[in-house]
Amino acid sequence: MRLILAALTLTTFLTPALADEIWVTNEKDDTVSVIDVATQEVINTYPTGERPRGLTFAQDHSVLYICASDSDTVQVMNPDTGEILHELPSGEDPEQFVLHPDNRHLYIANEDDAITTVVDTETRSVVAQIDVGIEPEGMAISPDGKVQITTSETTNMAHWIDTETNRIFANTLVDARPRDAEFAKDGTELWVSAEIGGTVSVFNVADQSEITKIAFEITGVHPDKVQPVGMRMTPDQKTMFIALGPANHIAVVDAETYAVRDYILVGRRVWHMDFSPDDSLLFTTNGVSGDVTVIDVASEKALKTIKVGRFPWGAAARPTSN
């Protein structure tokens, strides 16, 4: 019996690639934590540059891009080893970014400079810099790659950028302090969260008109503390999960009716989230409590809390099982 157990342990140890992973940036620890989706435990912690925030994988998940905000660079990490392979020019204070569907160009929000920087990850050079509003943060790109959205927190706008010309072609006002932007329903809708406004605006991408504005109300939580930040749409395009910051809940919104179906209690000051590669679980980063909450997508229930580093900020999934 003892021998079999030992053999099992050894097998697990030798083939970590059998498990899917969630990667989390720890803003105040200068690390990324790697969570094993199967065991829901932290299996690795790798050092990064200073103040890591946004993170995203290349389409084949062979490299991880990390916004190291206070190091003023985007780092490229080998996710198999945690080694920093090289750094990309990013402009000052990169906070959040989005990878173009061409798998080559990164659109980076430079929070301190009111600029969106476009970087070619192959030539490792800056292709364009676009003037946007003050404190750009939310970054999204349409599925066809034609429209890039930058939201600016102090200017309270979503800037619509034509990726062929790298020029702004429209600006839409949203409520105070927009934080995140997500395309939905095959790119026909754009959702923008406004942290201080406490709302999420939904736009028709075709003409940039506002379709609706979603508000939130949680029993026992003061409205001022309901501060929407990160958002993620289920692959069936039917449900949007929205992190509500210091309200410590995730809102579950029916994407057909725009009605809030439920609120899920998670850790303190929930920022961002990502689905497991099989889309069955949702992992949320809880900044103040320094942990990650695991939510079962089907039942919309919180299952477990996983301790990570200080101030977990972003989350990105990496399939390793196929």
């Binding site: 009111a114 509003g133 003050i134 706008m157 800037h159 600006n171």
Partner: peptide, 11 residues
Amino acid sequence: VEDNASSGKFL
């Protein structure tokens, strides 16, 4: 004024 102008330049 600079912050206001950042919205103002688009409007």
